[in-house]
Design a binder for these strands. Structure first.
Lengths: 144, 144
DNA sequence: ATGACTGCAAAGCCTTTGCACGCAA
DNA sequence: TTGCGTGCAAAGGCTTTGCAGTCAT
C-alpha cells in the first residue's frame, strides 16, 4: 500500500471518465487527483476541505460519477457518514476494523476470508459483484 | 428464523432496559414489540410508520438506547439509510446480500465465514466485538 | 458555437435537540 | 411526589437540486 499518489489509478480514472463521454472538466480532475492521494476511505466533506477551489456540489457530483463507473466504492465506517475508496484495477483491496469509541480504523487483507466470500458469492441467488466486511470493536488505545 | 413475533427477545429487551434503570414507558414498549415482529433489518422511518401512536423522536431515542445496550445492531444496507436488527441472545445471526438496483435483500448464514471472521477478530490489534458482511450485486429479478 | 461542467445558494431528507406536559415508580 | 419519558416542533448536518455563467470540445 503506497503512501504516494496513485497515478496509475488517476490516469485510469480520467481515461474511463473520458471514455464514458464526460469532459475533462477542472473540478473533475482536481477531485480525481485528491482521491489518488488517499489509500483509505475519505468522506466527501474531508475531500471538499482539501480542495477549497472546487465547489462542494462538484465534489459530490464527481464522487457519484466515479462510483457509477466503478472507479470508487462507497462504504460507511461511521454511522451516517459516507466514505469513498479507490477501486484498484488489479482488484486488490482491503477491509476495515473500526473503533466504536474513537472511530480510528485499521485496514487488513486476508486471502482466506476472500476465498470464503467468493464461495458465498457463487452460491448466492444474486449476481454478486462486490462485498464489504467491517469488524467493530475497540482500538488498542481505547481498550486501555 | 421464525416469522412470528419474537417474544423471547422482547422480554429480554424489556428486562434489560429495566435493569439499566430505564422505565417501562409506553412508547418504549411499543417500539420493542414492533422490532420483535421483524426478522430482518428495519429502518427508523419504517418503524415510525408502523407505530403512528409513537412520536418519531421516541422511535429514534428508543433505537439509540437499544443499540447502546446491545439489544439491536445498526447496519446500512442502502446508502444513507440506517436500519436496525434484533441481536439474538443466542448470538445466532445472519448477513445480507443487497441488490444495487432495487434494494431487495436476501439473508444468509455461513459457518465457514464466521470461522474466518473469528480468526481475524482474534489476530487484529483491536478488541473486536461485532462484524458486518454485506454482499452487493443484482438480484435474480434485476439480473434478468 | 454548443452544450456539458461548475459554483453558489436554496431545498430536501433523515436525525437530533429543546421544551413543556404526562406518566411510571 | 419526583423526575424520567414522550410528543411536537424547531434546529442540525449531510447531500441533492436549480440556475446562470463558464469552459471544454
Amino acid at each position: 500500500m503506497a503512501t504516494a499518489v496513485d497515478t496509475e489509478w488517476s490516469e485510469h480514472a480520467l481515461a474511463t471518465l473520458q471514455a464514458a463521454g464526460l469532459r475533462r472538466g477542472g473540478a473533475r480532475v482536481v477531485v480525481v487527483e485528491a482521491l489518488a492521494g488517499h489509500d483509505c476511505a475519505v468522506s466527501p466533506l474531508q475531500l471538499d476541505e482539501e480542495v477549497p477551489e472546487v465547489g462542494r456540489a462538484s465534489v459530490y457530483r464527481t464522487l457519484d460519477q466515479l462510483e457509477e463507473l466503478g472507479l470508487i466504492k462507497r462504504i460507511e465506517l461511521t454511522p451516517g457518514v459516507a466514505a469513498f475508496e479507490r477501486v484498484e484495477v488489479s482488484g486488490h483491496h482491503h477491509h476495515h476494523a473500526v473503533c466504536r469509541n474513537c472511530g480510528r480504523t485499521e485496514a487488513f487483507e486476508d486471502k482466506a476470508l476472500e476465498r470464503e466470500i467468493s464461495r458465498l458469492a457463487k452460491q448466492a441467488s444474486f449476481e454478486i459483484t462486490e462485498h464489504d466486511v467491517v469488524l467493530r470493536g475497540l482500538c488498542p488505545r481505547c481498550a486501555g
